[in-house]
């Protein structure tokens, strides 16, 4: 049975880590979560990013967050990746599988997955 005592243990463990994490985020992954994005499948895409980023050990450098509609509803789920130097990549028609590929090749490997980007459509 899950108990609040477990949460206490998580708190104690995290408290020592919190300081280390601050200020080290360099890449931002932003998932569109307005009605259009949600209807097109953004929720599992967002969750896949969170899971894959943590599994890849990138939680210190990558933050995954959500935003509203950016106006290209026909391409949802849309995911934008912001990197240092104002570099922005827009991935379109994303799926959880594509999300894993982006984490592996782009976020970890540093290489944009060109065939998933809006430019390829």
């Amino acid at each position: 049975m899950k108990s609040l005592a477990e949460l206490q243990a998580i708190k104690d463990k995290m408290k020592s880590k919190v300081v280390l994490r601050e200020g080290t985020n360099e890449i931002r992954v932003v998932v569109g979560m307005a009605t259009c994005g949600i209807a097109a499948g953004a929720r599992p895409v967002l969750n896949a990013f969170v899971e894959a980023v943590n599994e890849a050990g990138l939680a210190g450098e990558v933050t995954v967050s959500q935003t509203g509609c950016i106006g290209i509803c026909q391409y949802e789920p849309v995911v934008e990746v912001f990197e240092a130097g104002n570099k922005k990549t827009t991935y379109v028609k994303m799926t959880p599988e594509k999300a894993k590929t982006v984490v592996e090749k782009h976020l970890k490997g540093g290489k944009v997955v060109a065939e998933f980007t809006i430019e390829s459509k």
Binding site: L4, L7, Q8, I10, K11, K15, V18
Partner: peptide, 8 residues
């Protein structure tokens, strides 16, 4: 949960 986690 927030009360339990304090500043986490």
């Amino acid at each position: 949960l927030r009360a339990m986690l304090e500043d986490v």
